[in-house]
Design a binder for these strands. Structure first.
Lengths: 218, 218
DNA sequence: TAGATTGTTAATCGATTAACAATC
DNA sequence: TAGATTGTTAATCGATTAACAATC
C-alpha cells in the first residue's frame, strides 16, 4: 500500500540521484555543517537547482526553509528510509571469480543495506573456502540454500555462458530481484526484477562523450 | 566533421542499447542465421519493435527489407564501426585492489575496443607486479606515463578518498575521459568526459523495482 | 526590511509508442 | 497476390528546465 513518501512514489530518475545526494550530505555532515541549500547541492553535483529542489520535495518529510535551506540530518534520514539503508536486506552472490570476489569483498554494500550471506561457485577449488569471511558453497546448492535462507536478491557474476542457468536456479529458490553483471540478456518471468550492470553500455556512452569533446575542439 | 552515421548523431539512449543488440546479433550469427527482423530482436530483449527499428534506422548503412528483415552481418559491422569496436583505444587503470584487478583481468574489454596498457597503484606490495600480464606502476608515475603513452581514457578503481586526486593527475597527464568506479562525485573541467559507475544508484533502482513487485502481489 | 531561497505551475525537451502507408 | 515487415509521421509520455510567487 505504501506510505506517501516511499520508494514507489519516487521516479526512477530521482531514485538514481539519491545515492549521490546521500554521499554529499554525509560529507557535509561530517564536516560539521547543519544545513544545506538546493543551490549548493546542485553546484557540487553539476545538476540543475530546480531539479534538486524537486527531488528533495518528493522525498523530504521536513520542508526546507527559505534563506536557510534544508536540515542535513533530516535529509539523510529521509534518504536512508526511502532507499532502505537502515534495514538490512540479505543477498547471495554467484561466481567467485575476479569480479565476484571483488564485490563480495566490498564492505561498502553494508552502508547500502545489502548483506551478502552466501557465495556460490561451481569450481571445486573455490568451494568451502571463504571470500571476505563469506563461505563459498557449491553452486549445486543454490536452489536449496536460497530457499532456506529466504533470500530475495541474487547477484550474478558468472561467465556469460552460465548466467541464464544461474538466474533460473536463483528464481527457483525464491529470488525476486537479480543484479546481473554478466554480459547477457536474461530471460526471466515478469514478476522478477532484473538490473543489468552493462559495462559495455557504460563504455559506449563514455566513448560518445569523448568523441563529442574531441570533435568540438577542432 | 563526422560522418552522418557516426556516434555523435546517435542519441544517448540508443547508444546504450547498441551493445545489447550487438551481443544478440553475434549470437544469432554464431547460430548460423543470416537475417533478423526488428520484431525478433524486440521480443528477445523485451523492447518495443518500433524502438528497435528506429535505433537500427539511425545506425544502419544497409536498409532492412520488408518481409525479410536486416542482414545480421551488416548490422554487426555498423555497430562495430559506430562504437569503435574494431579499432583499439588504449586506457590506463588506477587501483589494483579487488575491483581494479578484476577489471584489468577481464579480457572481454578487448572486444569493446578497449586495451588497458598500464595499471597504477600506490601500494609498494603491488608495484612492479603484474595483473593479467599488465604491469603495475607506481601511482607517482601517472602524469608522466599517461603523457608518454598518449592515453585518453583513465579508469579509476581506488578508494573514494583518493579518487579526486587520481582524477586530477590523470587529467594533468592528458586523459580526456574518465570511467569512475569510486563512489564519489568527481570535479573535473567541462572538457573532460566522466562516466560514473554508481553501484549504489543501480542497487537503488533494483530495490525500487523489487518493492513494486512485492507490493503488487499483496 | 531586503534578499536568498523555497516550492509550484507552466513550458520545453528528449525519448517512447501508436498509427499507417510503402514494399518486398 | 497476400501478408509480414520496414520506415516515418504524429501522439504520448516522462523528465528537465524556466518563470515566478511565497516566505523566512
Amino acid at each position: 500500500m505504501g506510505n506517501n513518501k516511499d520508494i514507489q512514489n519516487v521516479s526512477k530518475a530521482t531514485i538514481g540521484r539519491l545515492p549521490a545526494y546521500h554521499r554529499y550530505l554525509k560529507e557535509k555532515e561530517a564536516a560539521g555543517e547543519r544545513t544545506i541549500s538546493s543551490t549548493a547541492i546542485a553546484e557540487e553535483l553539476h545538476l540543475n537547482a530546480v531539479q534538486v529542489r524537486k527531488d528533495l520535495s518528493v522525498i523530504s518529510t521536513v520542508a526546507g526553509k527559505p534563506k536557510l535551506g534544508f536540515e542535513i540530518a533530516d535529509l539523510i534520514g529521509d534518504i536512508n528510509r526511502i532507499l532502505g539503508y537502515d534495514n538490512v536486506t540479505d543477498a547471495v552472490l554467484v561466481g567467485a571469480g575476479g569480479l565476484g570476489s571483488a564485490l563480495a569483498g566490498y564492505d561498502g554494500f553494508r552502508h547500502y543495506g545489502l548483506n551478502i550471506v552466501a557465495v556460490f561457485d561451481s569450481d571445486p577449488e573455490r568451494i568451502d573456502k571463504a571470500v571476505n569471511g563469506i563461505r563459498v558453497f557449491d553452486a549445486e546448492q543454490i536452489r536449496h540454500l536460497v530457499r532456506r535462507l529466504n533470500v530475495l536478491i541474487g547477484i550474478i557474476c558468472v561467465p556469460k555462458g552460465a548466467a541464464q542457468q544461474v538466474a533460473d536456479e536463483l528464481i527457483e529458490g525464491g529470488v525476486r530481484a537479480i543484479w546481473n553483471f554478466a554480459p547477457v540478456h536474461l530471460n526471466v518471468p515478469e514478476n522478477i526484477a532484473v538490473k543489468n550492470e552493462d559495462m559495455a553500455a557504460s563504455l559506449a556512452i563514455l566513448s560518445k562523450r569523448l568523441a563529442e569533446i574531441l570533435n568540438t575542439e577542432k
